[in-house]
């Protein structure tokens, strides 16, 4: 499934009566836990994300300097993380949530999420997933054309940064999570919270 996500503030909600599309609500939420410096020095952060497309899994991404280690685990991993948070820090556990309706049109899946960070509205993320294809390079143009159909000229012709090196690899659910994390990171930076 090739996916592109675009962060845009997007006002008019009532355009969304696509003939043939149907909706049900979904959400993605994430929690980030910075860990205090240990002997090696450097700031480590663990991001824990849940995606309602994969309800039985928990995604965790550990960032340490330039290293990024992803992990996919069962729902019970949340409990282990809870125990470990006694290890880790106290402060600054920011929670970001992206929640909204989900539409299906033929083989496309469109999700409109409004991003809120601890009750404050930050913006809107639009996620488009083209499910029949597994390699982004094949269908990038196709998705772009589809999105142009309703977002107009606001669509950039640039491939999202995360996907640039991965256009010819098989797409995994973890890639969706990475893209969301990228956008959440941008939201955090814009408010000055890391």
């Amino acid at each position: 499934m090739g996916t592109g996500s675009l962060g845009r503030t997007w006002p008019a909600k009532n355009k969304w009566q696509i003939p043939g599309g149907y909706e049900n609500g979904e959400n993605i939420n994430s929690q980030s836990l910075p860990i205090p410096n240990q002997k090696n020095g450097g700031q480590r952060t663990v991001h824990v994300l849940h995606n309602s497309e994969q309800p039985a899994s928990v995604f965790a991404i550990l960032e340490y300097g330039n290293k990024v280690v992803p992990l996919i685990a069962d729902r019970l991993f949340d409990l282990v993380i809870l125990k470990m948070t006694n290890v880790c820090t106290d402060k600054k556990q920011t929670k970001i949530e992206c929640k909204g309706p989900r539409f299906e049109l033929v083989d496309f899946c469109i999700k409109l999420g409004s991003v809120t960070m601890t009750q404050n509205f930050k913006g809107v993320l639009v996620e488009i997933e083209y499910r029949p294809s597994v390699v982004p390079a094949n269908c990038w143009e196709l998705i772009r054309e589809f999105v142009q159909g309703f977002l107009g000229s606001a669509v950039s012709s640039q491939i999202p940064q995360y996907l640039q090196n991965r256009m010819n690899e098989i797409y995994q659910p973890m890639d969706t999570i990475h893209q969301y994390l990228e956008h959440f990171g941008q939201y955090r930076k814009s408010t000055g919270v890391i």
Binding site: K67, L71, I72, A73, L76
Partner: peptide, 14 residues
């Protein structure tokens, strides 16, 4: 908990 195979790296970096 069942996990993917990156768990050792994850724990060591943690």
């Amino acid at each position: 908990i069942a996990t993917s195979n990156t768990v050792v790296e994850f724990l060591t970096e943690l």
